[in-house]
Design a protein around this nucleic acid. Structure first.
Lengths: 313, 313
DNA sequence: CCGACATAATACCCACTGAGTATAATTGTA
DNA sequence: TACAATTATACTCAGTGGGTATTATGTCGG
């Protein structure tokens, strides 16, 4: 497959007519026909219904059309962004984050950064905490937001907050009759759902270690790939799930109770390279400090231990 | 630019070595060098620092690398999805939506649909309300979720709910001293921010008409492209902004008050083609009905007039 | 139902781009 | 400073993409 083929197909899909599409694409009609045929051959799927005038799209063609538009748009953006960065010499700040920070302050942080430093290109990449450490060292990202402590001497970590954990409980079960914090011991003998299945060690192990440290043994442990699935299974009464409190808003059809117990928290940690002198690191820290000052709802004392990041004395 | 060039560049960026990358790509090293040069020429930007071993990426190269990875991944997904649909004959349900429904029930609707009918490929496309009508008629989407009434005989509309409007107010201003609902007349003489600037007529006109109908004349009207910007300007004390209540959660650094007055609501409307006999339309309606029954928080009575969609008698 | 027109597919040829081989230039290091 | 590793350049060849001419197919009016 080839970008040219995408452009050609988009032309035909838009015009629903090979001849006119060919004119707009500045080629003759026969080569256009052949390129579309080649595309269909490679996919092994008919994209167009030709025994009809005007030409119509098949179901597959319709899907392919919308996706092709998006890919082409993405390529244009990529070209423009690369030129901007390359020519104006303005830099790129690449931020890695774990999915759960999306439900916390990350979106407004990024928004504020774009506002405060419109000349830098900000790029965000979702990745698990432990993938962030090598990504930082290889220069793929400059800043990471994760939930795991690490022991790599090349990467600094700053604990932004200790977020309390919450247990997601299926409605209409005994444990869901109360909304008070749930002592960690109450998880003994329960069916537990943890995420993510990979990569290990990850947040799942953090939860399992916590339970182990309290001598709590769940009846079974079910591993799933991501939090969405986990909460879906909770709603389907498959078991309980321990999540960071900020992820509560993801589903409203399950019951939530804070988890109570020693170390029943998950940190939100900022990572960056040791000796990274880029001014943007400081900008990020500064903006985070401001956000703490504004103290928006996602930082509510109710869901956090009263910690403050080390740089915000 | 060419997908091949993206693949080649990704290979070099990953290996940081032309020779090894060429081996992995199953080509000789010289053509690889030339393709990368061609790419850099087209972009007019250096992507690699060659007078260094191992080869390093420039800032622009780093950006281009991550984006190229994403584009290539997207293309693979597109290929796979198209094949799936084309071969297994399972269909595509294409859903258009206005951005504000993202803060309402759309995400869980889509999740539920995927769960209930795993064989259909669900595609979601953000588009403004009035763009949805032609998109429906041209078959680009099958279902639309928007906020504007229309008068096209080819498209059915079902009002799902009448969401109350909320005024976003800068903190520390007189109007922000109270949290009680704000009578619509209080907007007289205020600076107002509306969105979206395009396309017209749109939600902005809905708000302006509402004020006009109540003989309320704001001091100035500032038009911006999207709600994010609008709320940003509110936070910057540039003026007030009228938003659907579900969009409250977008920013926590402004003050919100419900708007009180005749017709101070914005409907959430489901559109589909007249005579569309696809079973998926009914499935969507059914799932929505269920979601009403579950009555999650974003549907709270507080932020909605007590309406029920016509199909949920 | 047929014929004329519109439109897509096929046949064939040419040019140019991309790949290979051989070799020169450059970088990093012992 | 010289050698090993690695990238760039020169040159050639094959295959793909594009053009023109023509055939096949579909649509619509009479």
């Amino acid at each position: 497959m080839d970008l040219r083929q995408l452009r050609y197909f988009v032309g035909v899909a838009r015009e629903r007519n090979f001849t006119r599409a060919a004119q707009q694409l500045n080629i003759a009609q026969p080569p256009l026909s052949r390129q579309i045929q080649a595309l269909e051959d490679e996919l092994g799927v008919a994209l167009l219904i030709r025994n009809s005038r005007p030409v119509r799209l098949t179901e597959a063609g319709r899907l392919f059309y919308e996706q092709a538009l998006q890919v082409l748009g993405r390529v244009d953006q990529m070209r423009a962004a690369t030129r901007r960065v390359g020519l104006n010499q303005n830099s790129v700040l690449s931020i890695g984050f774990v999915a759960s920070t999306l439900y916390g302050g990350l979106p407004s942080l990024v928004r504020k950064l774009r506002h405060r430093a419109p000349d830098i290109e900000i790029q965000v990449l979702e990745m698990m905490s432990i993938q962030q450490i090598p990504a930082l060292k290889e220069g793929r990202i400059d800043i990471g937001f994760g939930r795991l402590h690490h022991s790599d001497s090349g990467v600094v970590e700053i604990v932004l907050r200790e977020e309390r954990l919450t247990v997601a409980i299926p409605r209409d079960t005994p444990l869901a009759q109360d909304s008070a914090p749930l002592p960690i011991g109450a998880l003994t003998g329960q069916k537990l759902i943890v995420y993510p299945k990979e990569p290990r060690p990850g947040y799942a192990d953090q939860v399992l270690n916590l339970l182990h440290g309290h001598d709590v043994r769940p009846a079974e442990v079910h591993e799933v790939r991501e939090i969405q699935t986990a909460l879906g299974l909770v709603a389907a009464e498959t078991g309980l799930c321990v999540i960071p409190s900020s992820a509560r808003q993801m589903r409203s059809d399950v019951h939530y109770r804070l988890l109570e117990g020693e170390r029943a928290t998950s940190p939100v940690i900022l990572y960056h390279r040791v000796g990274d002198t880029s001014p943007y690191i400081d900008l990020v820290k500064e903006v985070i400090k401001e956000m703490y000052a504004e103290n928006p709802s996602w930082l509510s004392a109710e869901h956090n231990l009263p910690t403050r990041p080390s740089f915000a004395e």
